[in-house]
């Protein structure tokens, strides 16, 4: 299922003195099976854009094509549920959405809203809880007794249990410890590969983009200012740094070496790549 933005603009509180135009003429495609990353400053409109992906917001101009459905400013608010089931969104700090008495019931809440019978939803809950790295002993506990990281996992499981075709992640690892972050990102990558889930990742962490994404959109002040594969986008280190967006650690390090006189055919994106390139250079390429 592709998601296609055509000339999408969005304004908060239109025709009022508090009017705020957040998105300007955005064209963007999330291809089926593609791991797409959205990067940009705080306030560049990423989170607003994300809410268009499952019709929580409707564009004030332009149209959004979500699979078979087209969302225009005139689209009625009814019958959007099928879209929401196909496009699951994990919002920033999703642990704040937990409310049920037990973890199992909270995870089953989403599927049940989409008509999955209770028994099946319970099975789904157990399955997805395992996917996010918690064992069955957590099923009957109250979500409010868990630690922050565990709550985050339960919340993510709640979205995964809806078995979405597209999974949107709005800074899913913000505030997690390095270990938890890595586990979580690996889990999403696994879902992407094994279950062929389309992923849209919103993040400030360029290392994650370099490690996992197939395609990147760079947003600034509500417009797409750059798009391409991470390899293409991250070659322009100076442009990105001028925009205060940064590049992956390995790329930044390689750029420093370039400044000192090293030459690379192409800047590396990951530390593995950097190491390989350095080995190739044999350490003697220094041309001073």
């Amino acid at each position: 299922m592709d998601i296609r933005f055509e000339k999408v603009s969005f304004t908060y509180q239109p025709n009022s003195p508090f009017e705020q135009r957040v998105l300007h003429d955005i064209d963007l495609v999330v291809k089926e099976g593609c791991y797409t990353a959205l990067v940009g400053h705080t306030g560049s409109g990423k989170s607003t854009l994300v809410q268009h992906l499952n019709a929580l917001l409707k564009p004030t101009a332009g149209k959004v094509q979500i699979g078979e459905r087209t969302i225009t400013p005139e689209t009625n608010n009814k019958n959007l549920k099928p879209i929401r089931q196909k496009v699951g969104i994990v919002f920033q700090f999703p642990e704040s959405q937990l409310f049920e008495e037990t973890v199992a019931r909270d995870i089953a809440f989403g599927p049940q809203n989409f008509g999955v019978p209770e028994e099946e939803a319970k099975v789904l809950a157990a399955k997805t809880l395992k996917m996010v790295g918690l064992d069955e002993s957590y099923l009957e506990r109250s979500p409010f007794d868990l630690s922050g990281g565990q709550m985050r996992r339960v919340a993510i499981a709640g979205v995964l249990a809806m078995e979405p075709e597209v999974l949107v992640l709005d800074e899913p690892t913000a505030g997690l410890d390095p270990q938890g972050r890595k586990e979580m990102m690996e889990m999403f990558a696994r879902l992407h590969k094994e279950n062929n889930i389309t992923i849209v990742l919103v993040t400030h962490l360029m290392d994650d983009v370099a490690d996992y994404a197939d395609f990147v959109y760079v947003l600034e002040k509500g417009t797409v200012v750059k798009q391409g594969t991470p390899r293409d986008v991250f070659q322009e280190v100076e442009w990105l740094q001028a925009k205060q967006l940064g590049v992956p650690t390995a790329t930044a390090f390689a750029q420093k070496l370039v400044d000192k006189g090293f030459t690379f055919n192409q800047l590396p994106l990951t530390s593995t790549e950097l190491a390989e390139m350095l080995v190739e250079l044999g350490g003697f390429a220094h041309d001073e």
Partner: peptide, 15 residues
């Protein structure tokens, strides 16, 4: 916060 949680729950199929 209300807006945020509302959106999160709508994404989980609440009307």
């Amino acid at each position: 916060e209300t807006e945020k949680i509302m959106n999160a729950q709508r994404a989980r199929g609440v009307d």
